[in-house]
């Protein structure tokens, strides 16, 4: 019985993975709509949003409102929360002992972009 369960689960797993791939191919990810008039924010403005329920970050010259994403971040809150309201490019690029975030994270980030960082 365990053998049958194993075979069934393995086949189902690969079928779902294949299904996800086919779905992604047939419906490519749409780019998030850019605001008509792009806003710019100074770092002092970003710093006003440094809480768990209002978390902005500046990463590589762009400003992101990550409040809605915080609960979904894979690591514990103590890892990401200190970067709310701050310039977090280095942290983004040097996650886990110098390693950058994955391309999947790069794909996610534009969905939370709210504007450009004002050069100081």
């Amino acid at each position: 019985m365990m053998r049958k369960l194993f075979l069934l689960a393995t086949v189902l797993f690969w079928a779902v993975v294949l299904g996800l791939w086919l779905l992604a191919r047939s419906a490519p990810m749409s780019e998030p709509p850019l605001p008509l008039a792009e806003k710019t924010y100074a770092l002092t403005e970003v710093a006003r949003h440094g809480a768990e329920n209002d978390c902005w970050m500046a990463i590589d010259g762009q400003v992101y409102d990550l409040t809605g994403y915080l609960p979904e971040h894979p690591s514990k809150p103590s890892i990401i929360l200190p970067w709310c309201g701050r310039e977090a490019s280095d942290a983004y690029r040097t996650k886990t002992k110098g390693r950058a975030h994955s391309p999947a994270a790069d794909q996610l980030l534009p969905a939370y972009r709210i504007g450009r960082l004002l050069a100081e």
Binding site: L20, A24, A27, P74, P103, A104
Partner: peptide
Amino acid sequence: LAESPALAWALVSPLTQGWPL
């Protein structure tokens, strides 16, 4: 998946992931 099938695939695809995944 609800957000986008491409995002759902990106989460399991080894091609779009880093060392943790």
